[in-house]
Design a protein around this nucleic acid. Structure first.
Lengths: 181, 181
DNA sequence: TTCCAGACATGATAATGATCATATGTGATC
DNA sequence: GATCACATATGATCATTATCATGTCTGGAA
């Protein structure tokens, strides 16, 4: 019988955290080009991973909120390929990369949870991509609903959902109104 | 000193493959709801992962071509959450899940490569998402170029790139023409 | 209660791209 | 060389959405 790993990896990671850090809005956790020395978990607030473009605009690669691990892939890189900035005041736990890798090596269970975590992230990131290939608000919402098992978003969340779908709030409101009619 | 793992995980996986399978166009590798029993690597051809929707349309979650591992996340699931169908004739290697997991357990190096592979997939999937949140062809191409270090796509690839960007070929050709002018 | 910020709602306009139609170029095959 | 498939190219039209403007509603703070 195959045992499927479960449990929240972020929590396991937090148990091993070495430091905590309070970040004010606008504070940087790291910059592009910095050496990767730690693994970070956002406990509260919001930290965004952004990659500045040549033309001055920026791409947001990840928007990390409660219990989200930041820039997982950087664990295996020498330097960061993006900036991390608190877009809201945030509380961040951290663990040195060497300690993290040592944990992976010596703790089989921890290592498996890490893989499971990464696999889940792959899955949800792929799904998000596919939602965004849809061109109309209607199709994107349909795809999103399939992903969340068709529970309609509560009114307070509409704006956030609209952002996840990559559409303007107005367009989203209109689509929701259309569905009620 | 931290050793960063490198090498192609798919190749390591193929070395351990137990079976090979030739698939005709349109043939299914597995269906939604099937028990996960194997890990698959596409050697040649194309296999697509699709998730049928209520309205009859389908979401394509992954389009696997040469040396791509199929549905990584399914390794940790009991059943598949999507269909896998060859959209072109394909050659697929497979390894039973139990053997795969056993390899992960006993071979530290293999296990690390697996994590590195997953981390890279997370990274590229996230990047793809962010490209797709851009609304105009121009912005999407800019973001894509930043990702591939600004090497312009060769003419034979344009159609493929257009698809990656989630825009129609025509719109893509026009944008490329605009940039030459 | 009063005030205020922010989400929700809706109309008008302009920008943008999907789609359809059609044409050109190019490499492979016979 | 003739032919075929397919990528590239370009024009015209139409559907859709972003954006701006403006207004309403609701929950929390004073």
């Amino acid at each position: 019988m195959i045992i499927i790993m479960s449990g929240n990896f972020a929590e396991h990671l937090m148990e091993r955290a070495e430091k905590r850090r309070v970040m004010e809005k606008g504070a940087f956790l790291f910059h592009e080009g910095d050496e990767v020395q730690s693994v970070f978990i956002v406990e509260e607030g919001v930290v965004e991973l952004t990659r500045p473009q040549l033309d001055g605009t920026a791409i947001t690669l990840q928007r990390a909120t409660d219990l989200t691990i930041l820039a997982e892939a950087s664990v295996y890189s020498r330097v960061y390929h993006c900036d991390a900035v608190a877009s809201m005041p945030a509380l961040v736990s951290q663990l040195s990369r060497s300690a993290f890798l040592a944990n992976l090596k010596k703790d089989q269970h921890f290592s498996e949870l890490w893989s499971v975590h990464l696999a889940k992230e792959v899955q949800s990131a792929r799904y998000r991509s596919e939602i965004l290939t849809k061109k109309t608000v209607r199709e994107r919402l349909d795809a999103w609903l399939a992903f969340v098992d068709h529970d309609m978003p509560a009114k307070g969340c509409w704006k956030n959902v609209a952002e996840q779908l990559g559409v303007s709030p107005e367009a989203f409101y209109r689509e929701m109104a259309r569905r009620n009619a």
